[in-house]
């Protein structure tokens, strides 16, 4: 696994590095030095999310020890916004003539996948899912089906970036809080909207566990606009034997009732939220999955990330991850220690 996020996740400093927080209502990624991963001649053309996505994928493959990946499957809600914005701006500026090819090519959602495949010389199955809050989850579902059909492994991930322009557009439709909110105190500010985030997260999934495996995904459900009864029934079905719940709570009072319903069903099981670490974005669920898998393998919690002093179990064998994107796309994933 590998993750570039607003926290110090890329270089393995998560247990020692301090919690990164902001009151700008936008949690931006801490970017690594890309030069050890991407040749300079390729790097010069890439915009931010392409560098983030490609580097995370390469680090993930290094971490997995698997060599060349099989299928490459990703999810993104928006793809490269920087390239999309540049391309659209130039259409207007140059009256639809003399347009640079690069921003157009890179504005397509599957460009990160293409770059990964080119750099790793991988000619296997290659697919990118673009389904708003279900983008990563559909990539995960496709990967699970590929593994069930015989693929030895998949490189599965998600990437998202936030730009000033997109932040402004989303703020106009009520996605973000209207007053500066410290991300470390996100859950105590129950008001409409959340704080924006971004990130790139990749997983090497295998059909059978390897010595390097972090965790096993044992159950997975996607629910589109579920009724309270449906959501409650699904959570009830999966709560058996769960030691810890990781939830996608984001301080947004418009959709908090789903998490409150989950609290009722999951009473007695300790819970940890993750959106104060990565912010809210279409594929934030991938960060939640990354965190859950890390906790299962390390059996440790980065205490500086969760100062509230939640009482945690001595052993974490099974984690339930529940997340939703603005009340529409809900996902429930159960992970177990391998």
């Amino acid at each position: 696994m590998a993750a570039i996020s607003p926290q110090h996740t890329f270089d393995g400093e998560m247990f020692s590095a301090p919690l990164v927080h902001t009151d700008s209502n936008l949690l931006s990624c801490i970017e690594p030095d890309y030069k050890p991963f991407i040749p300079g001649n390729s790097l010069r053309r890439m915009t931010r999310v392409l560098k983030m996505g490609l580097t995370t994928a390469l680090k993930c493959m290094q971490d997995s020890g698997l060599g060349t990946p099989g299928p490459i499957v990703t999810g993104t809600g928006k793809g490269s916004l920087q390239d999309t914005e540049k391309f659209i701006r130039e259409i207007e500026q140059y009256k639809e003539t003399a347009l640079n090819p690069t921003p157009f090519i890179q504005s397509t959602y599957n460009s990160v996948n293409g770059l990964i495949a080119l750099q790793l010389k991988c000619t296997d199955y290659n697919n990118t899912f673009v389904h708003r809050g279900f983008s990563f989850e559909n990539a995960l579902l496709d990967s699970i089906m590929l593994l069930a059909e015989g693929a030895a492994n998949t490189l599965t991930g998600a990437f998202e970036e936030m730009t000033a322009e997109h932040f402004y557009i989303k703020s106009r439709i009520g996605f973000w809080k209207t007053t500066p909110t410290d991300s470390s105190a996100l859950y105590s500010h129950s008001s409409p909207g959340s704080v924006a985030g971004e990130g790139a997260t990749f997983f090497a999934l295998t059909a059978t566990p390897t010595p390097k495996s972090y965790a096993a995904i044992t159950s997975f459900r996607m629910l589109y606009k579920p009724t309270a009864a449906k959501l409650t029934a699904i959570l009830q079905q999966y709560r058996e034997g769960v030691d810890l719940v990781i939830n996608g709570r984001n301080g947004d009072s418009n959709h908090e009732h789903y998490y409150q319903a989950a609290d009722t069903v999951l009473t007695g099981i300790p819970q940890l939220p993750f959106k104060h670490l990565c912010g809210e974005y279409d594929t934030a669920g991938a960060f939640g999955l990354w965190m859950a898998a890390h906790l299962l393998r390390s059996q440790q919690i980065p205490t500086q990330w969760f100062p509230s002093g939640t009482k945690l179990p001595a052993q974490i064998n099974r984690i339930l991850l529940y997340n939703h994107f603005y009340g529409e796309q809900h996902s429930v994933i159960v992970l177990e220690k391998t």
Binding site: R45, Y94, T97, A98, L99, P101, T102, I105
Partner: peptide, 12 residues
């Protein structure tokens, strides 16, 4: 791709 970029440079 650079060659296309250079064509655009000449035009702009």
């Amino acid at each position: 791709i650079d060659s296309l970029e250079l064509m655009v440079l000449l035009e702009r």
